[in-house]
Amino acid sequence: MNRDDDCDTAEIAVSIKDITYGYTSIPVLERIDLNVRKGEVIGLLGPNGSGKSTLLKIIAGLIRPSSGSIDFGNRRRGRSNKPVIGYMPQVESIDWDFPITVEEVVALGLWNRSGVMPWSSRYVRERVHKVLEDLGMSSKVKRQIRELSGGEQKRVFLARAIVHGPELMLLDEPTTGADPSTRDDILRILYELSREEGVTIILSTHDIRGVALNLPRVVCLNKRILADGDAKDILTQDNLLRIYGLIDSMSVV
């Protein structure tokens, strides 16, 4: 183990201070404070419309918060204040009929290292193939994305979020629509990235049993942060009731 979770001086990767977003009458996010340590894997759990995606977009710099600030700690790499981010949007935002292959999608993650020519450089090709191989997608490299199953589509977008060697990964529902074995695979890969390369990972989910309970740290969100801590400690009946309003008997722990 090269990570010390309990060390107070552990490097802070993301520090969110008092972030509010939305109109005063209908806030989407209210007074969010959150510190994420380098190499941590945390899950944002909450119902639809709870602000999970919005918070990820604010961290990614896609949306400017109404108030509050984000700090990315003492960064060594790069000149800008922002870390290299690996991002995975929700599947709903993707046009699955778009004529693009698995390989091409993943290569987009390296768009600024691809040179001027319309075809990919050797470096890009090799890197893309390596990542797809690690994710068990070697046989699908030349496939169109619409020919893939839900789980395979997830793997492709995860590959694009990994391919450029990010320091921070922001994944919007990376397991929704994936079958249980893909879901477990994705979680395993994320743990490896955090443990071996110190990648900080923030993901959103509404899968309590399959995802949240397997994470070391879960942040329950419904406009405000309702609970934050070890999944097994905070995912209690009471907390779930506060988060979701009512308890779906099927999804309770």
Binding site: K57, A60, G61, L62, I85, Y87, M88, P89, S93, I94, D95, F98, I100, V105, L108, G109, W111, N112, R160, H164, L170
Partner: peptide
């Protein structure tokens, strides 16, 4: 990148 996935393109 922009026409396929504008959001991610911006982040990248």
């Amino acid at each position: 990148f922009t026409i396929f996935d504008r959001e991610t393109a911006k982040v990248y």
